[in-house]
Amino acid sequence: MKTAIVILNWNGQKLLEQFLPSVVNFSQNEADVYVADNASTDSSITYIKEHFPTVKIVENTINGGYAKGYNDALQSIEADIYCLLNSDVEVTKNWLQPVLYVFKNDKKTAIIQPKLLDFKDKTKFEYAGAAGGFVDLYGYPYCRGRVFNNLEIDNNQFNDISEIFWASGACLFIRSKVYHQLGGFDEDYFAHQEEIDLCWRTQNIGYKVKYIGTSTVYHVGGATLQETNPHKTYLNFRNSLLNVVKNVPTRWFLFVVFSRLILDGIAGIKFLFELRPIHTWAIIKAHFSFYKNFFKFLGKRRKLHKKQNYNLHTSIVWQYFALGRNRFEELR
């Protein structure tokens, strides 16, 4: 089973210097390592050629963000399994074997995520994916090991192998045939939550998404956009709304869309009370972009296969903010 680890890079030489050695050292004889460069203007490519001659380089002509960056690069990479790996991830010894074992023995599993721990505090799960992702009735994402900003300590409670709803784009394994069958990532997202859309569409055509807790990687997180960056707020709110329009089952569609308009408004008011008006403005801009793209995404919705039932927990917002449930096992 030919495996390609593909690291998307944009002006990230410092990250490559820090994290590429672990990827090369712990992937030898099991996978080819690629760096897909998004038209960097620093000396990233020169650094790779000088220090890691075994690493293959794919040069994209523009910086099209996460979605287009991978779509462009993967057109020229032949492999059975792609591992899409952020440049700020440290991998560990034997991280590939448990993942590849599941791919070999379960043909219906198309996407896999390992355990994601915080590089800055390796006792805790990491925000971007933790122990596997889910969405609630309203399309808000959350994870095992991370509900909103509450990060759990890793006490081996998620050392299992289980089905999840979405895998983090920080470290996402996918069968190449499924990736290309689905047309890859939706480039209208640019960055953030496009992996949720991809996982949703993967399940719609009958495949499974899994979490493998016996494989561990450490993610810095926020190396491209900090959590406090208003542009990240904009992308997360807008793209979450686009996921709703594109993928929510028909029976819930109108209810969820109108409910999200109200809930996102409440979130904007909350930012105002927290004296963070720039994030309120980011939500407003996200909604204007959503309205602009509504009918375009409605057209995409009509072309998709059956909509996957996703209602695992009714409202993560209600349970977290009203009921004080901040751990995955407390959710109902």
Rank of each mutant, 00 (worst) to 15 (best):
R144T: 02
D121T: 12
D160Y: 00
E90N: 06
G145Q: 08
E78M: 09
W166P: 03
K107T: 14
A170S: 04
D80T: 11
S76F: 15
F173N: 09
Q75N: 14
A191W: 00
E194N: 08
R146P: 13
V178P: 00
H192S: 11
K108N: 15
N105D: 09
L116N: 05
E163V: 07
S162L: 02
V135Q: 11
V99T: 12
K115D: 04
N159R: 00
N94C: 13
Q157W: 01
T109H: 03
S87E: 12
L85Y: 01
N155Y: 01
D88Q: 10
C143V: 09
L117G: 03
Q97G: 11
I153A: 05
F119P: 02
S162Y: 03
D197N: 09
D118G: 02
C199K: 06
L100T: 15
L74T: 00
N156L: 02
E195Q: 13
E195K: 14
L151V: 08
F134T: 02
N155V: 10
L182E: 00
I161M: 02
N156E: 10
I164C: 00
K124G: 01
G139T: 12
E78V: 12
E152L: 13
E152F: 12
K107C: 15
G169H: 08
D121N: 15
T123K: 14
Y189Q: 00
W95G: 15
D106C: 12
K124A: 00
